[in-house]
């Protein structure tokens, strides 16, 4: 029997779709950890990126810290927190947040720094206060990069959340880990495919989000010549 049909039959087996170890539950767990980690990372990285980008102060420090976080081995962070706090959700979240903060922080910072200084000069010259410049100008103009950073982080988080299985809290990694211990290749492949599908869904979601929140004036291609681009 070839491997593709084995994977197909794994997906077709009803018992893989039910119970606490079924695909829907594992999928939901995976999404839950990923969303939680991404939200926590965004709550840290976006404000720090906006503030350092806006003031120009502390940018070097923030970027250096982000680079440091980028160099941290996820397995190491996970293990360290497990040793400190025991198995559970927290170690996974800490490891995933450490993974997600750098791309969000760096892109947000660069997005704000990348705003044409002439435009901010004009804004201040017309009497905008710092907060107004940030809210009305820098955030909307940095939005494409902020979204890019969030998307990069989201895909890495989704792919890395498989390690949650190692600290016993499920997720799609469970299929991969169990497939290995039971020598069932089709189950490893099935789990991997589900993760890839989730990553593709994330990509699609961010494409929609981009259409939703990025100001139309910044979407150059969309509005080439028509006068009523809305």
């Amino acid at each position: 029997m070839n491997i593709a049909s084995e994977v197909a039959s794994w997906f077709a087996q009803p018992q893989n779709w039910s119970g606490s170890g079924g695909i829907p539950v594992r999928f939901a767990e995976h999404v839950y950890y990923s969303v939680l980690a991404l939200l926590a990372a965004a709550a840290i990285a976006v404000p720090v990126g906006l503030l350092t980008g806006h003031t120009g102060r502390g940018g070097f420090l923030a970027i250096s810290l982000a680079n440091f976080a980028r160099a941290l081995p996820t397995i190491g962070v996970l293990t360290l927190v497990v040793l400190g706090m025991g198995l559970g959700l927290t170690p996974v979240l800490v490891a995933l947040v450490a993974l997600a903060v750098p791309p969000i922080l760096v892109n947000t910072y660069e997005g704000v720094r990348g705003v044409d200084p002439q435009v901010t000069d004009a804004a201040r010259g017309m009497g905008m206060r710092g907060g107004e410049v940030l809210a009305r100008l820098e955030v909307p103009m940095a939005m494409p990069l902020i979204l890019l950073g969030l998307r990069t982080a989201a895909i890495q988080v989704v792919s890395t959340a498989t390690i949650a299985a190692y600290v016993g809290i499920g997720g799609l990694g469970r299929f991969i880990v169990d497939g290995q211990s039971q020598q069932r290749i089709e189950q490893i492949l099935g789990g991997a495919l589900l993760v890839v599908a989730l990553a593709l869904a994330v990509t699609g979601l961010f494409t929609l989000l981009r259409r939703w929140v990025v100001a139309p004036g910044l979407r150059r291609r969309a509005a080439a010549s028509s006068s009523t681009a809305s």
Binding site: G173, I176, I188, V195
Partner: peptide
Amino acid sequence: NALYAVPSLALFFLLLP
């Protein structure tokens, strides 16, 4: 990019045989 989204763990396991 699709390759990038595949969990490394799964790839390692799949190559083992």
